[in-house]
Design a protein around this nucleic acid. Structure first.
Lengths: 119, 119
DNA sequence: TACTTTTATACAAGTACTTACCCCAAAGTA
DNA sequence: TACTTTGGGGTAAGTACTTGTATAAAAGTA
């Protein structure tokens, strides 16, 4: 889990633009390649870690857990662990995360339409 | 302009998931950090290269021109150049790009709301 | 002549993202 | 005993993204 330089020029720039542009603010939170697809799968229903893995077979475990962590830190996803063996961990959307549904839906609609038009 | 390996494992995975998930399809097209903000600025009105640069002061010229190129390849942005000196180049949204407005608007609304709630 | 403007391009270097591979606990099951 | 299941952690390596700096053409202006 390599540390990220928080005071790099890049991060400074990103934060600057987030102040003036709401779209950039959103991208800073869900801009990674996998985050929207994770949120999309969770928006249907809460899921266990292994269910997410099966739902998104293309993602590696490392990426999945890393993005889930970041989504927790951004208060978009809630992690609920039951202290049993084997572990039982459920991920669900927080209220803030649930409010992303219009965004995810608009994306899905556009994606389907664009796919159809291009064959 | 370093070439990108189109047949890397990563790209293969991305394309796989795009087939089954419309949200991932969208991310493959506008998933970069700067693409949505560029599209957002163009959605208000067509803009010259230098206008975009002023509108998004945080982006480097390299990134701006690179993403504009990719957006052209994905048929989301149209480049219109008049053969004068100094050059006069205008960027605008294609019909497919214009259809992204609901997505960009949904993002902006969520971003503003989330910013407000967190102070 | 020298400097400015506009829209870029090229190359090197740094930073972040992603993958690949190996490892663990602790209970249940064959 | 040995193997499976679940939810991860650690490290190294490869790949992509981003920046910084230098460069260009051709007309207009000081």
């Amino acid at each position: 889990m390599t540390a990220i330089k928080e005071n790099s020029t890049r991060n400074f720039n990103k934060q600057l633009s987030a102040v003036s542009c709401p779209v950039t603010y959103v991208m800073n939170k869900i801009g990674g390649h996998w985050k929207p697809i994770i949120l999309y799968h969770l928006s249907n229903s809460p899921k266990r870690y292994s269910e997410l893995k099966r739902a998104i077979p293309e993602i590696t475990e490392k990426m999945l857990i890393q993005h889930l962590k970041q989504l927790q830190e951004d208060d978009l996803v809630l992690r609920t662990a039951e202290p049993v063996v084997p572990p039982f961990v459920t991920y669900s959307l927080t209220p803030a995360g649930a409010k992303l549904q219009p965004v995810l839906n608009a994306m899905a609609i556009w994606g389907l339409d664009d796919m159809r038009q291009r064959g």
